[in-house]
């Protein structure tokens, strides 16, 4: 009886577009769904630092290096915002990190692709961050308060990420023929993996129904994917590059582009751990974590001492 009452309050909050806060009653499955989604989102920010970090030491100018450093630093910050949002649901940072390091938790499959040339850094900022922004703009109005507030902060900071990527693409596309070719090659390799970022098609998306019902998501995977393609084609044309999809065609009736679906078998395979860089990413993350063990150890002892002194004073 009691529980029913709590559920009514929860449902009526959702119906009124009110946010759910950490101490509010919520159904177990809502909590579980959020924990999975927010921790995956946090892991993606952290793992996402790796393909770009790969190019910091090889950025072609000091300006490019400063910009890339600032962007990668932002991604680390975004991971931290999201971890604390997830912690408010009753898990610990150590538990989440452990799940990441032992492959129990997932992160966005996009980061399992390699960044082979400097043009890839342009394509990642432009396309990958562009797709992430599209998703995150929607999540600013997600039903869980701490997640929504983290998204507002992230979106504000993220807008420079996409622009710096597109700037790199313009330099390459309007540069020498070799540079333009690198830009086209990067676009060819990142286009379909980027479309996969929105998740499987609606009819096959196992988590979508609940996510929509609970207002965690407000638009479906296919809706977001369609909007991304509609917006991006014009940006490709400006660069004088070609979308690597023969089926891409404006459809006047739906006021949007028709386009090929990404290879969903590849998507599943990469998520399973068989992408080009899954192993490398996980090893790099584990190494960074293990190499930092002495810092955590020293800080824990130091922190305990500080607290004791504080209590004694």
């Amino acid at each position: 009886m009691e529980n029913k009452n709590f559920e009514d309050i929860f449902e009526s909050k959702l119906a009124k577009n009110e946010m759910i806060e950490p101490k509010d009653w919520m159904p177990d499955n809502y909590r579980k769904h959020l924990l999975r989604q927010i921790s995956q989102h946090a892991h993606s920010e952290i793992i996402g630092m790796l393909p770009e970090g790969n190019w910091i030491s090889r950025a072609p100018s000091l300006r490019a290096k400063l910009v890339l450093l600032a962007k990668v630093q932002d991604e680390g910050g975004h991971g931290l915002y999201l971890y604390t949002a997830a912690e408010s649901l009753g898990t610990s940072r150590d538990e989440m990190l452990n799940a990441l390091h032992t492959s129990k938790a997932k992160y966005s499959s996009i980061f399992n692709y390699p960044t082979l040339s400097w043009a890839d850094i342009g394509a990642v900022g432009w396309l990958v961050d562009g797709a992430a922004i599209m998703n995150q703009v929607m999540l600013q109005r997600t039903s869980y308060g701490p997640y929504a507030r983290a998204m507002v902060r992230i979106c504000k900071e993220e807008s420079f990420h996409q622009r710096q990527g597109y700037e790199i693409m313009t330099h390459m596309a309007f540069g020498t023929p070799e540079q333009k070719e690198m830009a086209q090659d990067a676009l060819n390799r990142w286009w379909f993996p980027t479309l996969m970022m929105f998740g499987p098609p609606d009819i096959e998306s196992p988590n979508s129904e609940n996510a929509m019902k609970w207002r965690i998501k407000r638009e479906t995977n296919d809706q977001l994917r369609q909007r991304f393609v509609n917006q991006t084609v014009e940006q490709v044309e400006y660069l004088g590059l070609t979308v690597p999809d023969k089926n891409l065609k404006w459809n006047e009736a739906k006021k949007g582009y028709d386009f090929s679906e990404p290879d969903w078998a590849e998507f599943k395979n990469v998520i399973k751990g068989n992408g080009p860089c899954n192993k490398e990413r996980l090893e790099a993350r584990n190494k960074a974590h293990n190499d930092g063990e002495w810092v955590r150890e020293a800080a824990t002892v130091y922190g305990k001492k500080q607290m004791e002194e504080y209590a004694a004073a």
């Binding site: 940072r93 150590d94 538990e95 955590r296 922190g303």
Partner: peptide, 9 residues
């Protein structure tokens, strides 16, 4: 699991 992150602020 032990907490290696220090308290929350």
């Amino acid at each position: 699991m032990s907490d290696s992150q220090g308290p929350l602020w």
